[in-house]
Design a protein around this nucleic acid. Structure first.
Lengths: 224, 224
DNA sequence: CGATAGCTTGAGAGTACTCAAAGTGGGTGG
DNA sequence: CCACCCACTTTGAGTACTCTCAAGCTATCG
């Protein structure tokens, strides 16, 4: 998931489990902190997240890190390029996955519906990544964090009385590396949103959106 | 093309024309400044660039712009998401294109080889975009411009005596919007590279790489 | 040859970064 | 069960990089 867009996508089409005539492989379970694959591994399976959250990262030689995406239920992870994985993939929570043989992506012979669904997921991925470019290249720290929270709220937020509540299983530095910021800046920006009473921080991993409209306004530069 | 990587990709696999058993549609021509499609248009065709350079852009409500990619010979442009184009696409030079019906991407019924080639192109695209994330999120202005020039040199540079020469059909502000910088910063960074004798600026649209090693070093932070 | 769009350079400002220190919370072991 | 420890987060102060605004420069086109 490229947590980038404001709203419009309230009902994410990707959340539905993929149609699959193929005899089901059993679901895979992952404990927090375990890796599903590493950059450079050969791709044999793709996975649809059914429960929990994954983190996809890439590293630069000097240790700088970019979080490429978070994998939420409905997302497909593990698309190959030249047969290889191009990110590391770690579970942030307990995760359940539905594996699909890579062959189903690359040929429709066995299961045309599944082939098509995986292809569509890849195309959605491209489009979502394009949004994320805009975020990384052109948005301020406040706009980035507001966009991030808005998308999470739409996709995985829960109603909490009049407000909406989001669980953030990732660390501040994961968020920073996703948004192209430092942890300090992420932390300061959270504080600033809290002080403007746009959000409340229930605990480090749970935030409540008190003024969704204001938050949405901040995603594209309102000066609130 | 997501002009991001240092070297390693000297022989780009994507440059070859796609295999295609399908009766060839005639090539399309585009004059500089004309648009191939706009954001929101319905996708009917994909295109492989055979000559020239395209520019893919997205806009934010307030006018901020992100150049998503430049399309160089060998690149496939026009991947749909929800049936629609998600960027504007403009020709920067005279461009020749080989169109492919979108149906060939989404089903292998007519021409399995073409279907497969288009799919592989989409997967390459995902991987290339991931590199670009690293660039936008984690690199300095100098690193960004050095990376940009290195990839162009590898993919479309010409030998020019002992040096390598690159043609830059895009404007400084196109480069800025691609790298997440301002035109002024791009211009200053060019000047700085010129003053360190790493590049020479033959004319605004033609630069010569005098010290490729030094330039490559700058792509990941060498302090030259 | 003048107009204009694009590029470069300069000065100053602002945002996000770096380095540093204090605060918080969860987990482990005594 | 409590205390300590460690990792993570927050806050602070100062810096640096990139941006903004402005002016000059350069090429291209009519």
């Amino acid at each position: 998931m490229y947590v980038t867009l404001p709203s419009e996508f309230t009902t994410e089409p990707s959340v539905a489990p993929l149609d699959c005539a193929t005899p089901k492989t059993t679901q895979t379970h992952l404990k927090p902190g375990t890796y599903l694959y590493f950059e450079g591994d050969e791709v044999e399976w793709l996975y649809q997240v059914t429960h929990g959250v994954l983190r996809l990262t890439r590293l630069l030689a000097d240790g700088r890190r970019q979080v490429i995406a978070f994998g939420y239920p409905g997302d497909i992870v593990g698309f190959p390029a030249k047969d290889l994985h191009h990110t590391d993939c770690e579970a942030l929570t307990d995760v359940r996955l539905q594996p699909f043989r890579r062959a189903h992506l690359e040929s429709g012979d066995g299961d045309p519906a599944l082939h098509c669904a995986l292809l569509q997921a890849a195309l959605r991925e491209i489009s979502a990544m394009q949004d994320h470019f805009m975020m990384l290249g052109r948005k301020s720290a406040t706009e980035k964090l507001a966009s991030f929270l808005c998308v999470l709220s739409d996709r995985v937020g829960d109603d909490h009385g009049a407000f909406r509540q989001i669980s953030l299983p990732m660390s501040r530095s994961d968020i920073a590396d996703f948004l192209g910021l430092t942890t300090e800046t992420v932390s300061r920006t959270f504080t600033q949103l809290r002080k403007s009473q746009i959000i409340a921080i229930d605990n480090i991993h749970t935030i409540i959106i008190q003024r969704p409209k204001a938050l949405l306004g901040l995603t594209e530069g309102a000066r609130d």
